[in-house]
Design a protein around this nucleic acid. Structure first.
Lengths: 104, 104
DNA sequence: CCTATATTTCTAAATATATCGAAATATATG
DNA sequence: CATATATTTCGATATATTTAGAAATATAGG
C-alpha cells in the first residue's frame, strides 16, 4: 500500500497535537500511562476511556479521534453505547519504515 | 535522550507539511526524487538544493528548514555562502521506535 | 569596496486548527 | 416511552500555520 507524500504528511499531522499523540500512544500501549491494561478486546478501547485524565471536552476528544481515523492510523467501530478504537498495525508499521535510512 | 510527548508532537508537526516532509525525505535519501545523489559531504545538502522543484519561495524554504531544525530533526551549519543541512540520525532512529508496538 | 549569490528576517494575508458548549443522535434499560 | 450514558455534530472563537515579497545579512571574488 504505497502512500503519497501528502498522505504521509496527513498522518504526521494527526500525531502533531499533544492530545492526539497521547490518545494514539494509549492505543499503541493498550493502557493509560502508569496503569495496567484492562480492555475488553485486545488492543481496543472506547472513545471515552481514551480521554481519561486528558482534560479535554468530550466533543474535542471525539474530534481528535476522528482525525486519527481520517489519517488512517486508527480504526473505529461502534459496539453498543461505546465506540471501540484500535490502531491499524499495518499503517503503523509503514510509518515506522519511514525513519529507516536508505529507504527508496 | 528521553523526550516528552510535547517534544515528539513537535517533531511530527515538523513533518506534517508536505513541503517540509519532502525536504526531510530528500535529506533522508540524500538525493532528489529520481536523481542520483551528488553532494559534497555524505548526507549533507545546502538549503538551496533542498528546495529544487518544490516551487516555493526561498523565504518559505528557509522557514521550513528552520522548523525542521527547531524540532531537532535536522542540523545545519554554514559553509561559505551555503548552509549545509543533514538529518540527526539519532533523533530519527528514536522516532522510528515510536511506531514499534509494545514500547514502554 | 562593489557585485553576485545564498540565506534569513520581517511583515502581512489567507487559511487551518484546537477547543469548547449546546444541541443532536445512538444505544441500553427500566 | 422515559431516562441515563456515550458519542457526535454544529457553531463560534482564539490561536497557529503557510506562504510570499521586500528588505536585510553573509560570504566569495574581483
Amino acid at each position: 500500500m504505497i502512500k503519497t507524500t501528502v498522505q504521509v504528511a496527513e498522518m504526521f499531522k494527526a500525531l502533531s497535537n499533544p492530545n492526539r499523540l497521547n490518545i494514539f500512544l494509549r492505543l499503541m500501549n493498550c493502557c493509560a500511562p502508569g496503569t495496567v491494561c484492562s480492555v475488553d478486546e485486545a488492543g481496543k478501547r472506547c472513545v471515552g476511556d481514551l480521554g481519561a485524565d486528558l482534560n479535554i471536552a468530550p466533543s474535542t476528544l471525539s474530534h481528535h479521534i476522528k482525525e486519527l481515523n481520517r489519517a488512517g492510523l486508527v480504526r473505529m467501530q461502534r459496539r453498543g453505547q461505546h465506540v471501540d478504537c484500535w490502531v491499524d498495525p499495518v499503517v503503523v508499521e509503514e510509518l515506522g519504515r519511514f525513519f529507516e535510512p536508505g529507504r527508496k
